[in-house]
């Protein structure tokens, strides 16, 4: 994009971040009482709510039931007012369907699915405000909601995006950086074992640079893990204090 310098000579990005800096993450667990687990996350200006229901009986047709593991059912929807231009419908468009599928695959890999055969876990993600990195924030929010629901996971699932500007990899890109036409690498990892459960790249990137960008994204996932872990510990501490466990 002409006119906008995504990374200045001094090493600062448009929003004032350094190349290896995340946007500010603020989150809360247990925002709703009706859902089994729920969480809210803000990554910069991207705001996402996630709710988890289950494990419960299969809803709808029984033929969907899997005899050896739990059925992970996701739905990704965006509020019609979440983007700069108003969206016509909150879900059902191709992008949301793809996102739903990606979330499903990601969490299929992270949940200990064999513990609940013939059951179903619902993960519902609602984007309230979008400013880039929707998939990443959705995964992070859904992880927190799953933890709030007490569903056994192999590890936290943390997702982070990265791009490549002026021969330098940049971490956690915003909508502006996303739409400038550069490469976009999205990674979801299990941070402790450094296993990658989801990987997607848009646009083109020279093969030599791939490892740098991937390293940056994985580093981002680890940083996010630290933030989420702290939030979970604080939340559990509060809940324990309220219920007098201490």
């Amino acid at each position: 994009m002409a006119g906008i310098e995504l990374l200045s000579d001094q090493g600062f990005r448009v929003d004032g971040r350094k190349a290896n800096e995340l946007r500010r993450i603020q989150c809360r667990l247990g925002v709703f009482t009706q859902a089994d687990g729920s969480a809210y996350i803000e990554q910069g200006n991207t705001k996402i709510l996630a709710a988890v229901y289950g494990p419960h009986e299969i809803r709808g047709s029984r033929s969907k039931a899997l005899h050896d593991k739990v059925l992970v059912n996701c739905q990704y929807s965006m509020a019609t007012f979440s983007t700069g231009e108003r969206k016509r419908r909150p879900r059902g468009d191709r992008k949301s369907k793809e996102m739903t599928m990606h979330l499903q695959q990601t969490f299929d890999a992270a949940i200990l699915t064999s513990l609940y055969p013939r059951s179903q876990i619902d993960i519902f993600v609602e984007v309230l405000q979008s400013d880039g990195g929707n998939y990443c924030a959705s995964v992070n929010a859904a992880t927190l909601a799953l933890i709030d629901a007490g569903i056994p996971l192999k590890d936290y699932v943390c997702a982070c995006s990265a791009s490549f500007v002026n021969d330098k990899p940049i971490m956690d890109i915003s909508y502006l950086e996303e739409s400038s036409g550069g490469a976009e690498l999205i990674v979801a990892t299990l941070p402790k074992s450094e296993q990658i459960v989801f990987l997607e790249m848009n646009s083109r990137l020279h093969e030599d640079n791939l490892s740098h960008v991937l390293d940056m994204a994985v580093k981002g996932c680890k940083d996010i893990h630290d933030v989420l872990d702290q939030a979970v510990r604080e939340h559990v501490g509060e809940v324990a204090a309220i219920s007098g466990l201490e």
């Binding site: 809803r59 909150p90 619902d122």
Partner: peptide, 15 residues
């Protein structure tokens, strides 16, 4: 006016 019942509210609202 447009109303959207999010599945966050109850799984019955899914789809």
């Amino acid at each position: 006016f447009f109303v959207d019942c999010s599945a966050n509210a109850t799984p019955e609202f899914e789809g």
